[in-house]
Design a protein around this nucleic acid. Structure first.
Lengths: 213, 213
DNA sequence: GTATGTGAACTATTTCACAGCT
DNA sequence: AGCTGTGAAATAGTTCACATAC
């Protein structure tokens, strides 16, 4: 009967909640009303138990014998995940990857807006990328304050990544997405998520090679 | 005394091995000779035990009382990770993200080469991106065979991602990196790795909001 | 009958702690 | 003295199994 709201929630659970929400949003658009944990699991490549356990961290939303009301669960998840608030993002290190991110519509759809772009190269400062004027990295701190930027994306080279991270932390950023292939040191209270494309591909291909003996 | 080579190796261990290798390569360039697990852990944001345990899956490479010979360990890891073989990669769905990946030098440095690019839009077919002529998706199967492509990267929209995945699987690809925010169904023997940028940012920002109560 | 919610069991992964080597 | 290698303990995360609800 009691829920497990007091237990601390694993990172992976939150990550999957976003997957459920995405699927529920699709289903709601199609005017489908109810879904079972098994069906939702099927559609997200997860087990029925996993779905129920994940939701169980936050309460009891299902109806025994029938399943979950899609519209209600969607709204509930939106509240849990505080999808109402919009967040401002800065990108540091402007190359093709940054351009791709600036052009990516997925962020805006999910309440994330890239509002500033920074680089240290004089040849890039003042130019426009994705409708945003590239600023000097020295203006980072000011911009973070003025534009209420709360997330930083590092798309610089590995060499300058630590320097960039330090500047982001100094400017008060608590949330960093790092694309540079470097192990960054940040204070305990700063959340950092590494996205290391070569490493992902290499790891993937290791298992490919390994399978072929 | 015995090693644990018979045990199956976690995905995460392999992934970290690439991190160690990267660091060792840097250190070797600087002509540093020896490193302890504690120092290597420091440089990669991992614990000393983690470093030793990970290496322990493959053998005993350290010297008690001093540490690991950097050059030797680097070579050993290169062998374990079969960094000698080069792998050919195809990208499907050509937009800014694909362009960024095509321009990314990190792949080539790590033995991964994007050799083909595909799209279904007639307006894109025949154009060049990153030195490669965009081909029709219908030519995928032929190209996979002729160019010995073993990895597919999906950078299409979520809507067409499943269709693309099916075509990659059909063409014999066993390894997929998926950037589309969609849960893809592939056979058991196909390895798929999802990189879902909005989700990563959202998850990150959830913890940010959560911390602020 | 069908599907949820959840302790208990299980599995995977990390960290501890220390014996043994140089 | 310093550092590795590794069972044992601890922790985290997933799956099982079933009592309970509709």
């Amino acid at each position: 009967m009691g829920n497990n709201s007091k237990k601390k929630i694993p990172h992976s659970v939150i990550s999957r909640l976003f997957v459920y929400l995405r699927e529920l949003t699709e289903l709601d658009k199609l005017n489908i009303r109810v879904i079972s944990s098994a069906e939702l699991g099927e559609r997200t490549n997860l087990s029925d138990t996993q779905v129920r356990k994940d939701l169980g961290y936050f309460g009891q939303f299902g109806v025994s014998g029938s399943g979950y009301n899609i519209f209600e669960l969607k709204n509930t998840l939106e509240k849990i995940l505080t999808k109402d608030e919009n967040l401002n993002v800065a990108v540091v290190g402007i190359g093709k990857l940054a351009s791709a991110l600036l052009a990516y519509p997925g962020f805006k759809e999910h309440g994330l807006e890239i509002v500033s772009a920074f680089d240290k190269s004089k040849s890039k400062i003042g130019r426009k990328v994705g409708g945003i004027i590239i600023q000097s990295i020295d203006e980072l701190e000011k911009a973070v304050k003025e534009k209420h930027i709360v997330i930083g994306i590092i798309t610089s080279s590995a060499q300058s990544a630590q320097e960039v991270a330090d500047k982001l932390v100094n400017a008060g950023i608590k949330c960093i997405l790092n694309f540079a292939p470097a192990a960054l040191n940040v204070p305990e209270n700063v959340k950092i998520k590494d996205i290391d494309l070569s490493r992902e591909l290499e790891t993937l291909s290791y298992f490919l090679k390994y399978k072929n003996k």
